[in-house]
Amino acid sequence: MTEAPNAETFVISLLLTLLAGITLAIIRQRNMFGVVILSGIYSFLMASIMIALDAVDVAMTEASVGAGISTVILLATLYLTGSMEYPQRRSVIIPLCLSLAVGAILIWGTSGLPKFGVADAPIHKHVGPTYIQYSKDHKMPPNMVTAVLADFRGYDTLGETAVVFTAGIGVLLLLQGGWRVSSAGRKRDDEDDENEPSARSASDAANGGTSAGGTSA
């Protein structure tokens, strides 16, 4: 080889290989509890890789969000739904062939991509140097990620905050409403009208309104 493989690249490759192993375990594991724990491990490994890739802000987010919040929410869901996956009745041949075909096309596509870690790749030529220059000139805070997040790309972040807000409202509407559906698949109408014992929140009122409108229509 013309250039010696340096330690940084080696560590990243090792962690990525571990990540692939965890992924195989997630595919094979039938117990959903095990899958959730494995996905927590996956998130921590991913955070380590992100640190090795110099993305410290992203690593912090992945460690707290991926391994923390999403594991807790997945476990809360498992408590409500049960944790065993039934043995498969359909064949896996077609999905496997489809996935491998997609993978082959994508691998063919990577041959045109620049090599890993080189400084003269096209991505480092366009807007990145501008952002770095702003921080160097002391026109922006030293953390370029914060500067880009909240200032240069403020519109983006406003949109993302709105998406988080919308998802939160959606979860409230789905889970906190007075509406209950019986396991026969039919809505028990008597529950949401007068027998509601506790008006828990404003979303209750919203749900009551829509269901009343639906029955009268």
């Binding site: 880009v148 997040l149 790309r153």
Partner: peptide, 19 residues
Amino acid sequence: YANPLPHVLMLTAIVVGVA
């Protein structure tokens, strides 16, 4: 320095992903 732009995009994508 690493390019900060992909970091910003992925940072917001992670939080939106969990939502």
